[in-house]
Simulated scan of single mutants.
Amino acid sequence: MSADAELETFRAQVRAFIDANAPKVKLRAGVRSPETREELATLRAWTAKLFEARYVGADWPEAYGGDPGHDVLRDVVVAEEIANAGTLQVPGGCTLAAQALLHFGTDAQRERYLPRIRSGEDLWCQLFSEPGAGSDLASLRTKAVRDGDHYVVNGQKVWTTNGQWADLGYLLARTDPEVPKHKGISAFALDMTLPGVTIRPLREITGTSDFNEVFFDDVRVPATAMIGSPGQGWQIANASLAHERSGVGASVVTIRRNWESLVELAGRTGRIDDAEVRDRLAAFAAEIQALSVHTKLSLQRWRDGQEQVTDAPVSKLAFSELNLRLAEYALSLLGPAGVLTEADAGAVDDGRWQDAYLYARAYTIAGGSSEIMRNLIAERGLGLPREQVAK
């Protein structure tokens, strides 16, 4: 059997597993947090099932539950099928923390944390971004000062998905302010229940609280909770972020599903025979196809260890901007009904397009803003001079 045929056989297996086991949830745009403890329990149980079936975590060492015959393209298939089903994803904080622990953690840390990630018992959040350190993460100001067998942590994080539910946090903090900013950062596995940790959910424009502010006031973190060595945090963070590329394929699936729903919406609103509407839908389809081809090529290069510096920025920029324009166009087709949310009587598709529009702008900011992506493509990919900042 050819490699492509084997992958399609695997896809059919994954799809059948999802059909039989995935929780039925309300379709919402973007990366969302549970709204209730019941939803949280559902997320934990679904996470455990995915790990148990080795559809997630197959790239881990066999000793920790991984698959010795793992193929990274299978991870892409799983992510695509989860997106296609419109069901829950394993929390990103869990997968990022797992990679940090697998490659830089101690044996004791791996034995303590990894089984509980696989079982869904521990939910992790990512404690990276700060009010003054988003796209320029190396400028973070949260400090961790050594005090005997502990580090004392003070500072603030923001945009922390699942922070209000997390058991543990994958924390970056500055342990040495005297060295260049990239070299003075360390990584920690932080118990979110420690005294001095305050979590404040942020009520967003979508009406939900998916992000949080997290404050640290003299939080005493055991020195044994450090992942890797002092000052190795920047390396660890980049390694764990670079490892997770399977979701790129899922983005194409998501945007193609949105386009299909947009075509269906144009039909229901009586606009499908309008030549201008058909032109716009066709133009969107062409952009999606171009994004799909680019994504497949970049994933193949990633698999072969030949990834280009512009692969991820181009995919991220193209998806986020196109996703926003799709949502904007859907609201234009709805006309006055486009302002109605799920709580309003008469909302079309239970306010699905309003929710998508309100969330879509976040995609153009999170994970590196569109402006940052364009700079990366121009400077690192095309060799153009760095942007001159007026003093």
Results as ranks from 00 to 15, higher is better:
85 A>P: 02
184 G>H: 02
127 L>G: 09
105 G>R: 03
136 D>M: 10
141 R>H: 13
79 A>Y: 08
87 T>Q: 08
110 R>A: 11
94 C>V: 00
86 G>P: 08
191 D>E: 11
147 D>C: 14
180 P>Y: 00
123 L>K: 04
74 R>N: 13
125 C>I: 11
83 A>W: 15
100 A>S: 11
83 A>L: 05
189 A>T: 05
159 W>I: 09
186 S>Q: 03
101 L>P: 08
150 H>M: 06
91 P>K: 00
202 L>C: 01
177 P>K: 00
115 P>L: 08
88 L>I: 05
115 P>E: 01
188 F>C: 00
168 L>D: 06
87 T>M: 05
200 R>I: 10
164 Q>N: 01
106 T>S: 15
175 T>W: 05
129 S>K: 08
151 Y>S: 08
88 L>H: 04
135 S>I: 06
155 G>I: 15
118 R>P: 01
172 L>T: 05
100 A>I: 11
111 E>A: 09
170 Y>F: 15
153 V>E: 15
152 V>L: 13
126 Q>Y: 13
123 L>P: 07
186 S>M: 01
76 V>Y: 06
88 L>N: 01
110 R>S: 02
141 R>W: 05
171 L>G: 14
146 R>Y: 06
81 E>Q: 12
79 A>W: 05
129 S>V: 12
202 L>F: 08
138 A>I: 03
184 G>L: 05
76 V>H: 04
153 V>K: 12
108 A>I: 01
129 S>I: 08
150 H>P: 01
141 R>Y: 03
199 I>W: 14
201 P>F: 04
168 L>W: 13
174 R>D: 00
114 L>W: 08
143 K>Q: 14
177 P>D: 14
157 K>V: 11
104 F>M: 00
86 G>M: 02
182 H>Q: 15
76 V>F: 03
177 P>C: 00
165 W>G: 06
145 V>R: 10
114 L>T: 01
144 A>T: 04
98 A>W: 14
196 G>C: 14
100 A>N: 00
197 V>P: 15
88 L>T: 00
195 P>S: 11
136 D>P: 02
111 E>D: 14
74 R>D: 11
121 E>L: 02
82 I>H: 10
94 C>H: 04
126 Q>R: 12
142 T>E: 07
103 H>N: 13
151 Y>I: 03
122 D>I: 14
114 L>E: 02
160 T>Q: 14
104 F>I: 00
114 L>N: 09
158 V>N: 11
130 E>N: 06
203 R>W: 06
169 G>R: 15
171 L>V: 05
102 L>Q: 10
74 R>G: 09
103 H>M: 07
132 G>K: 13
85 A>G: 01
103 H>I: 01
102 L>M: 13
165 W>Y: 14
134 G>D: 12
86 G>E: 04
75 D>R: 01
105 G>I: 07
83 A>V: 10
123 L>C: 09
